[in-house]
Each structure stands twice: as C-alpha cells, then as structure tokens.
C-alpha cells in the first residue's frame, strides 16, 4: 500500500467512525491525539485535542494504574472512566482497542449518566449522537418519567392533605373545636409511652345540666363554646384540651408538674368559668370542679389508672361543695364517698 493509499484508507476509516461513533478518538503510537469525532468537538475546540498527548487532555480515573501509552494499550477492551482535565471536568465512559494500522489506539467515549450535566454545559443536539445510540431515548424517558412522577406526586400530596383533614376531623370535637376523646387517648398514650412528665386534669362543669334543661340546648352550646375558649386561653400551645363527654373535659399539661402552678391554673380557670355568659337576653351561670393527677407521682404510668385517679380527685372536689380543685392522693380513698360522684350529680 502506498503512502497515499494508506492516507485514503485512514480518512475513510475516520469518516465511518464519525458516523458510527461520533465521540471517538485516535491516538498515535507516540501517545498523541491525531483525530477526534465530531461530537467531541462540541466539548472542546479542535486545538484542545489535536497534537496533544492523550494524558494531557484526559485524566484516566479508573483503572488509575495506567500512566503511559504501554499501560493504556494493556487496558484493551476494559471499561474506562475518564475526565477532561480542564473545567468543566466532564465525566466520560470509554473503551479502547488497538488501531488497525500502526501502533496507536482507538478510543470510543460516551457520557454515560453524566449526559444530564453535559447537556447543560455543551450545545448538544440529537444529531450529535449516533443514530443507534439510545441516549436520546434515555433523555425522552427521563423527561417523561419526571413529568409522570410530578403528576403522581401532586396527587399524593392532595391525598395526604385530604387524609390529614379527615384525621383532624376525626380527632376534633366539632362543637367546640377542641380535641375529642379519641385524640386525648392517643396523646395520653404517646406521653406514657415516651415516659414524659405531665399533669392531667379532669374538669367537670357544675350546674351545666340546669342551663341546658332550663334555657335550652342552644344556650348549652354557647356555654360549651365559651368554656372551650377559656380553657384554650388558660393553657399553652403544647398542652392538650379535650372535650371527652357532654360537659367533661380533660386537660393535659406537657412537662408541667409543679403543684403551685397547677393549683393557680385550676383556680384561674374555675373563676373564669364562673363569669356569667349572656345568651338570648338571659344569663347562664356555671362553674367547674377539677381533679388533677401528676405523672411523677407514679412509678409506672397507666392511662386507665391515671384517668380513674383523676376522677376520684374530681369527686372529692364535688363533695367539697363544687367549684374546687383537688390533687389526687391515696388519702382520698379513705373517704368512701370519693369513689363515686355525689348523689344527684346528674341533676347538677
């Protein structure tokens, strides 16, 4: 083969490679780059490649052992992980084979997953990829799947919002907006499980039934709403106020176990409950009795026990003549009357 024939053969081979593998590189026996595919020219200008030594332009990250032309040739057919040496240091995947003529090598490169970053760095179009290269299909899939995922995510968010709203409703007493019995049980359970310190008050309205019976349910509802407002105002955001029965409330004070402070809160609540509530030109008057338990008084916490002890303290308050506050203590059990509400309480 003459020199001219040789030259023509090489040009033909390069032209074919430009179509089949537009990201290929030919490296001569001396280790210099003597041809690059057209897509590589989107990454750097011609001068950045041609005539430069391969290792000047590329950093061979994996396998990291080869640093000479001989070492490179030994990587024949292996998976290469390369980076351009200057910024942007685009990651490239590659594979090399010996050249058909001469002693050089041919390397084919691809972006692999760095394609998404590469698109932001370089003006690549569909024509820069071999027709058989699935990169374009991969990009289509990335976009299509992200769009589908976005639609699913927004559906999930709306469903979650609906679920939270439904749960909130299920945990809320609709008349007063306070938590309901279920919510209170749930919160109390969590506090006990977490071995948190807290105080629990059981509050029962006095004379409420009389308001309901003589002035009607509308008056009763107004009173309950007023009570709810007072209880919320007299507690902190971290506390729980629940309406657990017709005129019964449970308050849980998070991390508050000081007797003086609890006594003060209870007294203030009772005195505010006694403020007359106007309704339809009439005045409703009620009061409240409270029994309190403190979690730190117990060695082992049990929700049923806590609530029943709070009841006993509440009965004691009722027996004392209502509008009172009592802390639970075992002494209360000595007075048998405290084991049950006062007779005629139903009419209170």
């Amino acid at each position: 083969m003459t020199v001219i024939e040789e030259q023509e053969f090489l040009e033909g081979a390069s032209a074919a490679m430009d179509i089949f593998c537009p990201m290929h590189i030919f490296v001569s026996a001396s280790g210099h780059i003597d041809h690059v595919g057209p897509t590589m020219l989107k990454l750097r200008p011609k001068e950045a490649f041609l005539g430069k030594r391969f290792f000047e332009v590329f950093d061979l990250c994996r396998p990291s052992t080869a640093a000479t032309m001989e070492g490179l040739k030994a990587l024949h057919g292996r998976k290469l992980h390369l980076q351009l040496r200057d910024a942007p240091r685009t990651d490239l995947k590659g594979v090399l084979v010996p050249r058909m003529r001469g002693d050089g090598i041919a390397i084919n490169l691809s972006f692999g997953i760095s394609i998404v970053d590469a698109l932001a760095e370089y003006p690549l179009t569909s024509r820069d990829f071999a027709i058989t290269d699935p990169t374009i299909e991969m990009l289509y899939l990335i976009e299509a799947k992200s769009a589908a995922m976005e639609a699913s995510r927004s559906l999930n968010q709306r469903l979650q919002g609906a679920m939270i709203a439904a749960e909130e409703q299920a945990y809320t007493d609709t008349l007063t907006g306070l938590k309901n019995r279920r919510a209170m049980d749930h919160i109390l359970g969590r506090l006990i499980e977490g071995e948190k310190s807290f105080a629990l008050m059981h509050l029962d309205l006095d004379f409420f039934k009389a308001v309901n019976d003589t002035m009607g349910h509308a008056a009763g509802d107004t009173v309950l709403q007023k009570v709810a407002r007072i209880l919320v105002e007299e507690t902190r955001d971290v506390d729980t106020v629940a309406r657990v029965g017709g005129d019964e409330f449970v308050l849980i004070f998070n991390r508050l176990t000081e007797r003086d402070e609890l006594e003060e809160i209870a007294r203030r609540m009772i005195s505010r409950l006694e403020e007359p509530v106007p309704h339809d030109g009439q005045i409703c008057r009620i009061s409240g009795s409270i029994g309190t338990v403190i979690s730190t008084d117990y060695e082992a916490l049990d929700a049923v026990r806590l609530l029943s002890d709070a009841d006993i303290a509440l009965y004691a308050s009722k027996h004392k003549g209502r509008a009172c506050h009592t802390f639970y203590s075992d002494d209360l059990l000595e007075d048998g009357r405290n084991l049950a509400p006062p007779v005629g309480r139903e009419a209170s």
Partner: peptide, 8 residues
C-alpha cells in the same frame, strides 16, 4: 429545542 430542556 434544547435536549437538556429544563437544565439548560
């Protein structure tokens, strides 16, 4: 039409 759409 830019292949990188939202990125670019």
């Amino acid at each position: 039409f830019h292949l990188g759409g939202k990125a670019g």
